[in-house]
Structures are given as C-alpha cells and as structure tokens.
C-alpha cells in the first residue's frame, strides 16, 4: 500500500522538541497545545540543547515527559526560585518555568513576585484555567466569582472566598518585568498569537532583558464538567471578560527588540 506520508506532503508533525510519549492529559485539555508551542519555539530558536525547564506541581508536573530538554521538578510553587538558582549559575542557558494557577498564584505567589521584581532573566509559561485540575477540581486563586468547584460547591462566594487574582496585571507593575502578556488557547487565531508571544518571551530572555511571562487562558474540561468544545466556548465567554487578553508590560528595550 502506498503511503500518504511522504516528505513533500507532510504539513503537520510532532516537533523535535516534543517526545514521542502518549499524553497523560485529559481529552480537551489545552496543556498539550501549550507544550507544543513551547517545543516549537525552542526548536525554532535552536536552543533545545541549552534549555532547562522547571516543571511545577499540578497537572503539568510531568511536563518533562513531553518537552524534550533538560528538566527539573520543583516543589509546589517554588519553580521561580529554583529557576533563579539555576540561571544565576548558568546565565548562558535558557531557563523557563511552566506553572499552573494554583502553583503560581496561590502557594507560589511569593516566589513569582520576587523573581519578577528582581528581573530574573527567566521565562514563565503560566497556564490559567481557573481551577486546581490535578487534585480534582478545587477552587483556585483565579476561579471566577460564582464558579462552582469541588471546594466552592455553591459557587465562589466573593464575600467569603475573595476575588480572583489577575497575575499579568499584578506582575506588570514591577520594574523588573520586561515582558508580560496574556493570550488564550481557545481557537487557532489565538493559538498563533500565543506562539508569537512565547517566542518573544524567550527572545527577551536570550537578550537578557528581564523577567518574561506569558499567561495562557486554558481549559479544564474535566474540572469544569464540560465537553471539550463547550469548554472552549466557556473560556471565550467567561474567562476572557474576567482576564482580558493583551500586552501588560513591554519594556522599552523589549519594544525595540527585532525578532
């Protein structure tokens, strides 16, 4: 049987930066897309062999099974501190953390704020899906008001449980931050914009222009109790109004960067 897969008609394949590993993420989860974008960017920049990733605690605890570069696995929330420790002794390497909202915006708030304030030359990929996925769908610091989770069963009551935290806006106030943007992974056009932002963030690091973070609005079909398609719609209709997409900090040297 003649194969259809020939070099001249391949339009889509696994990037070199992703390992040949069966996914452990749920159907409909956008972690896979985010992993792919990071892998594509590292491959295109030709830096896979000098990149050190730091995985978080959460669903992406096993990010290192998929993204094909040197990796460390941090304690919950501490990835930016660990990345600082690595980058300061190996300043010519590319160092990035990949963190979810519980990891970064809750238990790791101290580490992320101070890494940004110090202007650490690291890149942070921040997955915001408004829920704790790995532990079974509890309320996150980014859970929307009224949103039902397993630990806010009647919906997040802001009187008792407070309000969601907008990380991109918050970190953008820090002088050490060079590049802080929020993108979304709910449709192809936005995925393309997300990839461009990830590329810029790593270029910012390569040029030592300070702390860079790309916040990616993401889905959690399992935690949200929606089908994958419903989840994409829910993200667009509910998360984007609460977490507006945009560029929150582009420092002058970053704006002048030619990519």
């Amino acid at each position: 049987m003649a194969t259809l897969v020939t070099p001249e008609n391949i339009v889509y394949k696994r990037p070199v930066g992703l390992t040949d590993t069966v996914t452990t993420y749920c159907p409909g989860c956008t972690h896979g897309i985010a992993h792919r974008l990071v892998a594509e960017v590292l491959e295109e920049m030709n830096v896979l062999d000098r990149t050190i990733g730091i995985a978080p605690v959460g669903c992406s605890v096993f990010a290192y099974n998929f993204i094909d570069c040197d990796f460390l696995e941090a304690a919950h929330g501490r990835a930016p501190a660990m990345a600082t420790g690595v980058k300061r002794v190996l300043p010519d390497r590319i160092v990035f953390t990949y963190q979810g909202d519980g990891d970064m915006a809750s238990i790791g708030m101290g580490e992320i704020v101070h890494a940004a304030a110090r202007g650490e030359n690291i890149t942070v990929i921040f997955i915001n899906n408004a829920i704790y996925g790995m532990t079974g769908g509890q309320m996150a610091p980014t859970t929307l008001p009224g949103m039902k989770t397993t630990s806010s069963p009647s919906g997040r009551d802001v009187e008792a449980q407070g309000y969601p935290i907008r990380m991109a806006e918050m970190l953008s106030t820090l002088d050490g931050a060079g590049y802080i943007v929020r993108r979304s992974l709910h449709d192809p056009a936005n995925i393309r914009k997300a990839k461009k932002a990830i590329r810029t963030a790593f270029e910012v690091q390569k040029h030592a222009l300070g702390f860079s973070m790309v916040e990616l609005l993401s889905t959690c079909s399992t935690g949200w109790g929606l089908t994958p398609v419903e989840s994409l719609t829910w993200l667009e209709e509910h998360m984007i109004p609460a977490f507006p997409l945009g560029d929150y900090k582009i420092s002058e040297p970053v704006a002048a960067l030619k990519i």
Partner: peptide, 12 residues
Amino acid sequence: LGAINMVYGAAC
C-alpha cells in the same frame, strides 16, 4: 523558602 529552593536549583 525561596533561598532553599534557589539552592535546590543550583545544586541540580
């Protein structure tokens, strides 16, 4: 907490 996790990173 930050200090020991920086140590952890560099130790690796």
